[in-house]
Design a protein around this nucleic acid. Sequence first.
RNA 1: UCCCCAAUAGCUCAGUCGGUAGAGCGGGUGGCUGUUAACCACCAUGUCCCUGGUUCGAGUCCGGGUUGGGGAGCCA
Length: 436
Amino acid sequence: MRSVRAGREVAFIALNDGSCLASLQVVAEAGMAGFDEVCRLGTGSAVVVHGVLRPSPAAGQAVELAAERVEVIGPADDAYPLQKKRHSFEYLRTVAHLRPRTNTFGAVFRLRSSLAQAVHRFFAERGFLYVQTPIITANDCEGAGELFRVTVLDPDQPPRCNGKVDFGADFFGQPTGLTVSGQLEGELFAQAFTDIYTFGPTFRAENSNTARHAAEFWMIEPEMAFADLMDDARLAEEFFRYLCRHVLEDCAEDMAFFDAQIEKGLLERVRTVAETSFEVMEYSEAIGHLEKAPVSFQFPVSWGLDLQSEHERYITERVVGGPVFLINYPKDIKAFYMRLNDDGRTVAAMDLLVPKVGEIIGGSQREERLDLLTGRMAGVGIDPASLWWYLETRRWGSTPHAGFGLGFERLIMYLSGMENIRDVIPFPRTPRHAEF
RNA sequence: UCCCCAAUAGCUCAGUCGGUAGAGCGGGUGGCUGUUAACCACCAUGUCCCUGGUUCGAGUCCGGGUUGGGGAGCCA
């Protein structure tokens, strides 16, 4: 129950089961048994109503339920923390066990569910194999500092060997942690199934305190064999625009709510992306635009430096005025697995930049040539022995392949207008927060 | 991790020059013949985040801490 409006002769209950934003109007008349009790029910109560659905004589709803009997299943007293008024998102985070009962969080989590199903449908329609990559991994190639350690050793008295903790005595016989990405395993599967995708939780122990970072979040990572960077960009564009169209069509009521209550102009923004084809721009060209820009940036711009958020937004908002792929970044600012271009100084990387948020998708063509890959790993200090299985795919039947990653929460934020990642995750995990 | 801001009633907030606490919403009570986060009247809200200091006197000024938020870095 969202609210009760009681008069002497008639009472109205706004009843919501979470299936959609709109509540059902229940009408109870004074002659009904238990009418007085119904009038005293508080927001948050659970009831079962028996009655007749009929056209509503008043504006505001097409139909209403004329109650014949109201069963109070679970009453709620006046200490119920949610009132029939607007609360701050900060406050609602402290009652995350109850906030899905609000209009905004109802809309957010319906959108999240619908989007997850649309992601699977998109790839299923295109014959992609869905692979569940491991949550626990011994793969520390992306930097052990940000990995959550997984261990069964006694933290007070771990076994030691030469003064160091002996992970050889641990459950897996080696140091393990929670995965930071399923990409490397996804690449292995692409060499068998051609087109695959992962969609699952990932973890970062980074002490990030921002509205866009969480310690536990979900990522979508497709990988295609026999594909180059432009194939990758085409898939990313098709995927992103598919999801925009999906929420406009299948979540229309909730999207209208976001447009009215969360971000004015959201519908127009999402429609534009759904209808516009994306541009492609070389990193070098972007640097040229930024160097000539008639605005002053906080961070410096020159060839070889990574782009900051302010630069990305300038390119997509001011130069292009829409979504744009930036491609072919300097190799020194990108990951070791990205394919070296023929110029020898850039790699086949792409970032999709969109107005308002900047980068939303990052991807690349992968280095399929064994000698160049081992060379890059040596250059950045990664021991090839630790990734022997990854390298073996380059030894036998190696194909050109490419893929990208999309942070699921950032997609939801983009499509809902919600500005804090803590408010698009049912029970968010951030530094010092693992309640609920 | 760094920088900045904030913390006052259940919630959202105001609180002037340092002089002993306010509003709206919510709640309670009553009223109301169909409401739309109903409306009208009345009633009660309190460890002013904690701690130390300055002062005759601190919600207000200063130091330390805690918690929350914004930004940056890292990135998704």
